[in-house]
């Protein structure tokens, strides 16, 4: 399937952004139903490689639902039905040839609340590589753990206590541990669902810096309620409203020159 070549007709702004950047993932007319209730009403988004896409919008607008479609986390929810096309590197992720489990190793996820496993810091990081058989032997695993923790900026804080439980870390450290855990399986895309909403401003600043650094190696999609955060960390921003994607453009464009009235209203704080 050659979805790469498809262009998004509804968004002429996409043409203005650098066309050289390939699309890592695309979503075409994605509709999601929880039972009879429709949560997403046909979403079209391109996610460009090595960029950060921020999803903003008022609560209940479907940002998280959309995010969870991207690695099929919605499969675990009963009566959830997804329609439309979502492709990763041009391959339909809801297609027959893709297994949700393998997909999630390529599209990792970091959650709103830090959720370290009740294991040691080391085992938390080693969990993914172990189940995917990515490291053969102790030394290689040690290396993966160290590298992941270093990339998540947590190595210096925890290198002497790798055997202590991950639940004993502070909230911000726990969240960086979860990010380290996600990058340990070397995904291509990392999805972050309000990763800073349970953290204090200092921990938030840490994570934001980290996101900016991770962009080099990963494609990142982040859901956030914090408009400043979206402006700081993302290159692209999509505004969701009541299950619709209202507009998606360069972050600067969205914040300085929104085309839709609803976007303008939301980013200036008139509602939401």
């Amino acid at each position: 399937m050659s979805v790469h070549t498809q262009t998004h007709t509804g968004a002429p702004a996409a043409a203005r952004s650098a066309p050289a950047v390939p699309n890592k993932m695309i979503a075409r007319d994605v509709k999601v139903f929880y039972g009879a209730k429709q949560a997403l009403k046909g979403i079209n988004v391109e996610i460009q490689e090595n960029k950060v896409l921020a999803l903003i919008g008022p609560s209940g607008c479907g940002k998280s639902t959309f995010l969870r479609c991207l690695n099929r986390m919605n499969d675990t929810i009963e009566n959830c039905r997804v329609e439309g096309l979502i492709a990763l590197d041009g391959e339909d992720i809801y297609g027959r040839s893709i297994d949700a489990v393998q997909l999630r190793a390529r599209v990792g996820m970091v959650f709103q609340k830090p959720n370290p496993f009740p294991k040691s810091i080391y085992d938390n990081i080693a969990y993914g590589p172990r189940i995917h058989g990515m490291a053969s032997g102790r030394d290689e695993l040690d290396e993966v753990v160290e590298k992941s923790l270093q990339r998540a900026g947590l190595w210096n804080e925890v290198k002497d206590r790798l055997r202590e439980p991950g639940t004993g870390l502070s909230g911000g450290q726990q969240q960086r541990l979860c990010i380290a855990r996600a990058i340990a399986v070397s995904p291509e895309v990392i999805l972050m669902d309000e990763p800073c909403s349970a953290l204090d401003p200092i921990a938030t600043a840490h994570i934001e810096e980290l996101i900016d650094e991770l962009r080099e190696n990963f494609t990142i999609v982040i859901v956030t309620h914090n408009m400043q955060q979206a402006a700081r960390v993302s290159q692209k921003t999509a505004f969701f409203h009541l299950g619709d994607m209202v507009e998606c453009d360069d972050t600067e464009e969205i914040f300085t020159n929104p085309r839709d009235e609803r976007t303008q209203g939301y980013i200036t704080g008139r509602y939401g």
Partner: peptide, 27 residues
């Protein structure tokens, strides 16, 4: 056992049985 732990495990590409054996049961 909080659903968030299961989600965390699924999010890393673990299968259901891996999640149960290595995350849910230890917890």
């Amino acid at each position: 056992v909080p659903q968030s732990l299961r989600d965390g495990s699924y999010g890393l590409g673990a299968t259901k049985s891996e999640t149960i054996r290595q995350v849910v049961l230890p917890a």
